[in-house]
Write a protein that binds this DNA or RNA. Structure first.
Lengths: 241, 241
DNA sequence: CGCCTTCTAAGTGAATACACTTATTAAATG
DNA sequence: CATTTAATAAGTGTATTCACTTAGAAGGCG
């Protein structure tokens, strides 16, 4: 009942997750990795981190274990944790894997059907996207807005698949550095338009209870995102991160 | 500097994994879960486990974290870890997910090509399977032998896919209780024959560098395993575990 | 001059002690 | 008699300590 006041100024961003410190620490370390504050291949020093975060090594270790489970870190006995490297090949592959998994999710959703509020959320995401894309170009913040819409669509469809393992694996795909939604900023208007069209068709297939078609459309959809990313990396050789 | 002598006699079974105790403990707990020694939904008591395994809570917690990462355990703050439940639906779904993932692996392998020794191992697994299936029925231990052959085939193809994330996800699918290879015992001779035929065709597609065909064949192959399992569960209502 | 050995520092692995949260039981009150 | 509340026990969360392993540096030896 002494040191319950939040530490120095680290939690500033995430204000700490509910429950225990390990989870909060986990989020912070993940952020540090995805931000690039700690670079790939780097070895993680537990005591250093615990000092930085003003906690003991225990929650730090717990967080590291969990992040290793997510695939962000490697572990070697007596050598601790290192930040896993994600070469471009692996990132592109991750999109392919995600495409396959989200395809299965769409199929499951089409087989199982949407609940009323799931349907409502998706329909809302579709009209919101339509409205956003009405004008032929983006204003400031429009891309961020669409990112949120996009997230709603995919997350809701995923929850309609009603399979936890699937959800977790897709979540892992999202956490691959650079494939995370935060980094997908450099998209043209026509790219987004095309993707939003995909959403419409996927929704139709799901509502029509056409599992196979829903799966194929979703696979193609995510593969398209991969293609866009590759283009944005090669055209202007300006890596988003 | 007193109690450095190794503990009583715990490592007896698994002789402990190289490196640290956490990994050894992890294996033991996983075994306990997959064996059913601790039942699904059950809450795991850390102190109890540490007493049973004659280690402190620290490596136990580390192992639990890691197993949660593998998806075998659930975690809730201040409530610790519970054994995740795998209803039949989830197990069947896991096969579907694995089919999709191994399909991608086969595609990657066909795109990237097999290394010389990978090719050798697979060819060997094919001839070994042919020989085993020549006679029209199984002797004792033949099924176990084929399980090993089957494992070689899939593992080698997976390594040829050259993607770590994919490998880990498939590994997770294998660790789902009852979908683990250890439990697939109740197969007819014709089932195995069919599956082995699949192997031949998949190998051909991979060698012919036909990614799409390889993917489709592998998906169908694993889905077939799922179907066999379902049949073996429903026909005789004798659950393998 | 180069290589091997040894010593030392740094960092991880494990154990223990303590703090805090949750659940259960009993008691008291309506 | 039921319901709520307080006390207590059990169990998880965190910190700290010590042991052990590994890596780096310095010195001796070939």
């Amino acid at each position: 009942m002494d040191d319950q006041d939040p530490p120095t100024g680290i939690d500033s961003v995430a204000v700490a997750r509910a429950g225990n410190r390990s989870l909060s620490v986990m989020d912070q370390i993940r952020e540090a990795i995805l931000d690039g504050s700690v670079s790939a291949g780097e070895r993680i020093n537990e005591v250093k981190f615990s000092r930085t975060l003003t906690v003991s090594r225990t929650p730090v270790r717990a967080a590291l274990q969990a992040l290793a489970g997510e695939g962000l870190l490697d572990y070697a006995p007596n050598r601790g944790f290192t930040v896993r490297e994600f070469p471009l090949d692996a990132i592109v592959d991750a999109y392919e894997i995600r495409a396959s998994l989200e395809g299965v999710a769409a199929r499951f959703a089409a087989e199982r059907g949407l609940g009323p509020e799931e349907r409502a959320i998706i329909e809302q995401s579709l009209v919101a996207g339509d409205k956003l894309l009405e004008r032929g170009s983006f204003g400031p913040g429009d891309l961020a807005a669409y990112r949120s819409i996009n997230g709603d669509f995919h997350e809701t469809l995923l929850s309609a698949a009603r399979n936890r393992m699937l959800a977790e694996m897709i979540r892992i795909c999202h956490h691959v550095p650079m494939s995370s939604s935060r980094n997908i900023v450099a998209f043209e208007h026509r790219d987004v338009r095309r993707r939003h069209d995909d959403h419409h068709r996927i929704f139709e297939a799901v509502m029509a209870r056409e599992p196979h078609r829903a799966e194929m459309l979703m696979r193609e959809h995510v593969s398209g995102v991969k293609a866009s990313l590759i283009r944005s990396l090669t055209d202007r050789s300006e890596p988003p991160v």
